[in-house]
Nucleic acid binder design. Structure first.
Length: 512
DNA sequence: TTCCGACAGTGGGGTCGCAAT
DNA sequence: ATTGCGACCCCACTATCGGAA
């Protein structure tokens, strides 16, 4: 198949807003796709590369290359070129990659180049990613969408399902089931504003402590243990303590869902930055972070000795988990009968007092819905707010092009100046974007290519989850997950919160 | 007819490994 | 030694479509 066909379909998909029409366009292309080509074609049109990482980003794609006159590039040729790119390592790698990128782009027409650049850059912007591709695949193969989706979740790979489905038809779906050793997309949670709201929405439920660490999925098949992240990357080699914990379990074949955290000597969670640093470190490179021990804390059980537990209700999976895993490695949880809202509040407060991030409420009767952000899990975290000053803003991209989007936030210093301590683009409606674009232009004192710097006059109320240390900002601190709640027209910059007030939110110094 | 679940899009900060400077 | 880039960890929120109620 020619790359030009993909580029044209992608453009047509981007041009329509109707999801049903996007699905139909993709389905039409998939019908004309040979099974052998399907893994690459469908992955591209879901906005991703089968290679995952190829070492090429925006900076390597910036230079324009004269386009080819006529489309001759095939999808298979592109895939081969990108595989070759990903294999370039060692001294001279950057120059080598640059040359390969240039050679590939020179074989593409202008339209193909545009598609390739967006694909490699990770921004296809066609309003259709995995979910739409799955629906289109189902339509093309004449299979129920729900069954295709389930096969993809359990098989872990859209490409593999596409190939088998196009080759063998709907009967091939039965071959994709939970397999120990092969990762499954994890179930995700929605947010509730309060414990009370979560209880109202769920009915009978269990409250779990929410740990601020790295999500892990642990597979043990006899003596073989594999550990995967939320995005199904394997990190087994970095986690000998997790492997040991899995091997110590009184079962031969298990799939566990949990969170990985670094604890201090008193058993309190260390800051997320420390956990993430340790998980990101290779152990064969000696370093301080490698010495920081990690503790896996499990909260769900997906498979046990040949049994697939995904369809079991939460309460039964939890009961199996509690029989299998020692209490030390089990998440703290509290089952709530109807009306036990006081007990729920008490449990949540205790979790925070122990230094945890919050709680997750889980419906007792729900199955494990792999890969979905179902409404059966609701997380509740405390939200803090500050009134900060807008110091500047950056021009947005995509649907925010032409509007000032990403706000630079500052807090007041004792001398009356303002120290920048983060940015945010979240929480803004289209109307607010229009308003702030106009207002910030009026206040602009400098207009660099990326946006504007303004007189520090506008005050915004910012919600955030916490404050962490930062080497990037002059204040030495930054906000975690900052988002705009509203502009404070009633407040002047001189009334904004101070850097000292922001530092108050830092967690107490631990012994590190 | 209205409501609401699911999705895509828009990016944030931190940290690592690796290659270039 | 330091810097820049790519990748991946954590994540919130709004707009939109289309099926459910």
């Amino acid at each position: 198949m020619l790359l030009a066909e993909l580029a044209r379909t992608s453009r047509e998909v981007a041009a329509t807003s109707a999801r049903s029409r996007k699905t139909a366009l993709l389905a039409e292309l998939f019908r004309g796709t040979a099974p052998a080509e399907a893994p690459v074609v469908i992955t591209y049109l879901a906005g991703r590369l089968p290679q995952r990482r190829i070492g090429v980003g925006w900076s390597s794609l910036a230079e324009p290359v004269p386009p080819a006159g006529a489309p001759t590039l095939t999808v298979a040729q592109v895939d081969a070129a990108l595989t070759e790119l990903g294999a370039v390592h060692g001294a001279g790698a950057q120059a080598g990659r640059r040359e390969l990128v240039e050679r590939l782009l020179s074989r593409a027409t202008a339209e193909e180049q545009e598609f390739l650049v967006r694909l490699i850059g990770g921004e296809v912007r066609q309003g259709a990613l995995d979910a739409v591709a799955v629906d289109a695949l189902a339509e093309a193969a004449g299979a129920p969408a729900a069954e295709v989706r389930r096969a993809v979740m359990l098989g872990g790979s859209l490409g593999a399902v596409a190939e088998r489905l196009l080759a063998d038809g709907p009967a091939a779906l039965a071959g994709f089931r939970l397999t120990v050793g092969r990762p499954v997309l994890p179930m995700l949670a929605h947010t509730a504003k309060s414990v009370g709201e979560a209880l109202d929405r769920l009915g009978p439920c269990v409250l779990d402590e929410k740990l601020d660490g790295i999500r892990i999925q642990v597979h043990r098949d006899g003596p073989v243990v594999r550990v995967f992240t939320r995005t199904l990357d394997e990190i087994t080699a970095r986690l000998p303590e997790v492997v040991a914990a899995a091997l110590a379990l009184p079962a031969e074949r298990v799939v566990l869902d949990g969170e990985l955290v670094a604890l201090d000597p008193r058993g309190r969670p260390r800051p997320f930055q420390q956990t993430a640093g340790r998980v990101g470190s290779r152990l064969d490179v000696p370093g301080a972070s490698g010495a920081l021990p990690l503790t896996p804390v499990f909260f769900d059980l997906l498979a046990l000795d040949g049994r697939d537990l995904l369809e079991l209700p939460t309460a039964e999976r939890h009961a199996e988990l509690a029989r299998l895993v020692p209490a030390r490695l089990l998440v703290r949880r509290r089952v709530l009968a109807a009306g036990e809202s006081a007990a729920a509040e008490e449990f949540a407060a205790a979790a925070l007092a122990r230094g945890q991030e919050g709680v997750v409420a889980k419906a007792l009767d729900a199955p494990y819905t792999a890969g979905r952000r179902g409404t059966a899990w609701l997380k509740v975290k405390p939200v803090h707010t500050l009134d900060l000053v807008v110091l500047g803003a950056e021009w947005g991209h995509g649907r925010r092009a032409g509007r000032l989007s990403n706000l630079h936030l500052g807090a007041r210093e004792p001398d009356g100046s303002f120290a920048m301590l983060g940015k945010t683009f979240k929480g803004l409606t289209d109307r607010l974007l229009d308003w702030q674009t106009e207002r910030l232009r009026e206040l602009a004192v400098e207009q660099p290519a990326w946006g504007v710097l303004v007189r520090p006059e506008l005050v915004v109320e910012i919600a955030f989850d916490g404050v962490q240390r930062s080497s990037r900002y002059p204040a030495g601190v930054t906000l975690r997950f900052a988002r705009v709640l509203r502009y404070r027209a009633d407040k002047s910059a001189a009334e904004a919160d101070t850097v000292a007030a922001v530092r108050e939110f830092l967690p107490p110094e631990g012994n590190t």
